[in-house]
Amino acid sequence: MTMETTQGRARRGDTRQRIQDVAVELFAEQGYEKTSLREIADRLDVTKAALYYHFKTKEDILVSIFDDLGAPVEALIEWAEGQPRTPETKREVVRRYGEVMQDAGPLFRFLHENQATVRDLDIGNTVKERLLRLIDVLVEEGAPLSDRIRCHLAMFAMHGLPFILQSSDAPVEDKRMAAREVAFQLIEATVSGAPEA
């Protein structure tokens, strides 16, 4: 997580962040539809009125979580769009995106396990759109199809990390480093002009 994101969370106040964290836990444990605002309030040991002060509905909580996650991704896209498409820039995009995704594991488990809800709330489209925009800054204009696929796979290596090697007992940091290494190799293959298959 970046310093800017951490400071932004601190400015918002701990209660709002705690509500989001507990909501994600409950959504992941028992599903979005089966989780009530009352249960969120009970787990937090606050009144429902205190919860309403920050969020009126479960959807408000969920949208706020995705908005918070989206802010550093939007900032990364803006930064990347202003940079030359050099190998260094591409590696930096992958590295920074990996940092953003580092704390998003529970959220992406929720996405995976509550796909119908995500689709109904249109959050999934927003996440997908941001990821595709990020991939666009990696792909050279007129790049061959194989390079486009490499760029997609590089970003999905970082994006899909919560699901990659779930059955592996390797430490999470080892998985992150391995995913980043694979993503860098894919990006570098686009730069070196790897031949079409």
Rank of each mutant, 00 (worst) to 15 (best):
P195M: 03
V191H: 06
A116C: 04
A143R: 03
E88P: 08
N125F: 09
K48G: 12
R91E: 07
D42G: 01
G70P: 01
A170R: 14
A41E: 12
V118S: 08
I40R: 04
D60V: 06
E39K: 04
Q83D: 04
L111I: 03
E33W: 02
Q30P: 11
C151V: 09
I187E: 03
L51H: 00
H159M: 12
A189V: 06
S167Q: 13
A170T: 14
E140S: 11
V73E: 04
I40Y: 09
H112C: 09
K56R: 15
Y52L: 02
T35I: 07
M158Q: 15
I164F: 06
A23M: 02
R180M: 09
V172C: 02
T190A: 07
M177D: 13
V139L: 09
R18F: 00
D14C: 04
M101R: 15
R150V: 05
I65Y: 01
F27Y: 15
G13N: 11
Q17I: 11
Q7P: 01
A183E: 00
S36A: 11
A50K: 03
V63Y: 08
I19E: 12
S168F: 04
V24D: 05
K128G: 10
A197D: 06
R119V: 13
I19H: 13
D67N: 15
L131Q: 14
R11Y: 07
M155N: 11
L161F: 00
K90E: 03
R38C: 04
R109E: 01
G193Q: 12
Q83H: 07
M101I: 07
V100I: 15
A75C: 08
L62H: 02
G13T: 03
L145G: 02
I65D: 00
Y97T: 01
T126F: 02
K48T: 13
E99D: 14
G193A: 12
G98M: 10
A50M: 09
Q166R: 13
E88Q: 15
V182W: 06
E92I: 08
I123L: 12
K90A: 11
V73Y: 03
A71V: 14
H112T: 11
A154N: 13
I19K: 12
T35R: 02
R43S: 10
L186D: 01
R38A: 11
R96N: 11
W79M: 12
T190L: 09
I149S: 09
R9K: 14
Q83T: 06
E4L: 13
V22W: 08
A50L: 09
Q115R: 05
L37P: 03
Y97P: 06
R95F: 03
E140P: 04
A194N: 04
E81A: 12
E173R: 14
D14A: 12
L44K: 00
L37T: 00
Y32G: 01
L76T: 00
I135W: 09
G142F: 05
M158R: 15
A50V: 02
P72W: 06
E113G: 05
R109D: 01
